[in-house]
């Protein structure tokens, strides 16, 4: 990391008068891209459109951190490509097959067919403003 990344070059260590007692303990700011594993090849950010998953805690504008290496489970939230659309949906495994379970209870589950691509599993979520 270069000095300028840490904000003006001062990190808490390089004092001019009294030697900083923190000199050997500087750790730098918390790096969210490390916590969210964004430098790994399987992590892709995806933006949410629509309010259908509000009850699941997913709001429009949220940034989903998706994982293309993770195995889907019953109850996972996943990114799905079907019929030329990109969807984020809850997965269910019932009667030997996968289903998409719409957030709104009045809508029936949709079976996952051959033409449906399970693109990634949602692993984490970032909300820029609360």
């Amino acid at each position: 990391m270069t000095g300028s990344d840490k904000g003006g070059g001062y990190t808490g260590a390089e004092t001019t008068g009294f030697v900083s007692p923190a000199g050997d303990h500087i750790e730098g700011p918390i790096d969210l891209s490390q916590i969210l594993d964004l430098r790994r090849p399987h992590r892709f950010p995806v933006r949410v459109l629509g309010e259908a998953l509000v009850e699941r805690g997913i709001l429009p504008g949220d940034i989903l951190i998706t994982d293309t290496a993770a195995e889907p489970r019953h109850g996972s939230v996943a990114i799905i490509m079907v019929g030329g659309e990109v969807l984020v949906a809850q997965l269910a495994f019932r009667r030997g097959q996968w289903w998409l379970r719409p957030g709104r209870r009045d809508q029936p589950p949709v079976p996952v067919g051959e033409d449906t691509q399970l693109w990634a599993v949602v692993a984490a979520l970032v909300r820029e403003r609360v």
């Binding site: 892709f44 950010p45 459109l49 309010e51 809850q90 957030g103």
Partner: peptide, 15 residues
């Protein structure tokens, strides 16, 4: 720029 620019990432519609 789907993977390098936060304002351009892929969008997914909630089902």
């Amino acid at each position: 720029r789907y993977t390098t620019h936060i304002s351009e990432i892929m969008q997914a519609t909630a089902l």
